[in-house]
Amino acid sequence: MSKAAHVTPLQRVSVAEAAAWHHVVAASTAHDLPGVPTPDPGQIHAQLTQPALGSRRLTWLATAAEGAPVGVAALRVFTSPGQEHLAELELHVDPAHRRLGTGSLLLSTVLAACLTEDRRSLIAAAAADSPGEAFSERWGFRRALTLDHLILGLDEQPEADLLQIADTAPAGYRLARWTGTVPDELADAFAAAKNAMNDMPVGDLDYGSVAWDADRVRAMAKVIADRGDTLLTTAAVHDDGTMAGYTEILLPQGSGPRAQQYDTAVVPVHRGHCLGLWVKAAMVRQLRAEHPGVVEVETDNADDNVHMLAVNHRLGFRSYRRTHEFQLDLPAT
């Protein structure tokens, strides 16, 4: 293990520390995920300084002998009922400083924190066939889920096809749209629909479950707004007032060209009416009309989520990379 790297826990992240973090993440992303946009410095600063929903974050910075940043680690400690056993790892090492023990030093520090926090499951993501995958396996993480990442070029879906899908409302349903916080009159219905995500495929991950209510969906929107991002939601509302399904798109701060798909879900009793395809097509149409600076959307699906993969392929999404979710089962304290 290298003695050159020194690990420092970050308490209140300063502008300089956020810049150092961004330096490491940018170098790591460019090396391991060519073609994947690097978060800009403002996004990194917001991620490190703004509260997260249902969790808190512990962070560490590794520096070389001369003080240069060479690695970072973050531990997301989940606090919501149903997930108090869980923590999530993010770890990056500058490619120029790998194979020197920095990653192992950071992970050892994180594992000690997991014991202090009484966690039994640590999850982490790594691109398929990447150094992160090999590192995870070397440390005893087991592969628990594979995600297929897909990209949609917003100019690739023929307009006529998109209009036909978006304009064909299933009988008994109407669209609702909002930016940011859900309207008060839809908050309870939206929270009920959010709970449909608890049956999404998670492979062998010990992910737990989250109970959504109106307060939690409002808190989620506030977290996103406070870090400078924009959340767009399109929902299918049944004639009886229940929310049957929805899709969410995140526009990262800085108005970059790539939007991120957040949740898409259809409530079980409303499945079989092509609602997922309908709301996603309506969202794509909205992005084209109202956000011309966005040229593509990225999403990911579990590789066994056959239905949602079919919906995305129907809309023109194409697979472009894969990620493995790993889990390390921690000893009980």
Rank of each mutant, 00 (worst) to 15 (best):
P37T: 14
D40K: 06
D40A: 10
G42N: 11
G42E: 14
Q43V: 03
I44A: 05
Q47D: 15
Q47F: 12
L48F: 04
T49I: 00
P51R: 02
A52G: 09
L53E: 09
W60L: 03
A64T: 10
E66L: 01
G67A: 01
A68P: 00
A68G: 05
V70H: 01
G71S: 06
G71Q: 05
A73S: 13
A73T: 01
A74T: 08
L75I: 06
L75E: 10
V77I: 14
F78N: 08
T79F: 00
G82F: 03
Q83P: 00
E84K: 10
H85A: 11
H85N: 10
H85E: 10
H85G: 06
E88T: 00
E88M: 00
L89V: 03
L89F: 04
L91S: 07
H97L: 01
R98H: 11
R98N: 11
G101I: 02
S104V: 07
S104Y: 05
L105Y: 00
L107V: 09
L107C: 10
L107T: 10
S108T: 12
T109L: 08
T109A: 13
V110H: 11
V110A: 09
L111A: 01
A112L: 10
C114W: 04
C114P: 02
T116I: 01
E117R: 06
E117W: 01
R120I: 05
S121D: 13
S121C: 04
A124P: 01
A125Y: 09
A126C: 04
A128H: 11
S130F: 06
G132L: 08
A134L: 12
F135W: 05
F135N: 07
W139K: 11
G140Q: 09
G140F: 08
R143E: 13
R143Y: 04
A144M: 08
A144C: 15
T146G: 12
T146M: 09
D148Y: 01
D155L: 06
D155H: 12
E156C: 10
Q157A: 13
P158M: 08
D161H: 11
L162C: 07
L162P: 08
Q164M: 09
I165W: 13
A166L: 08
A166V: 05
D167W: 02
T168H: 14
A169Q: 11
P170G: 03
A171M: 04
G172D: 04
T179P: 01
T179R: 15
T179A: 10
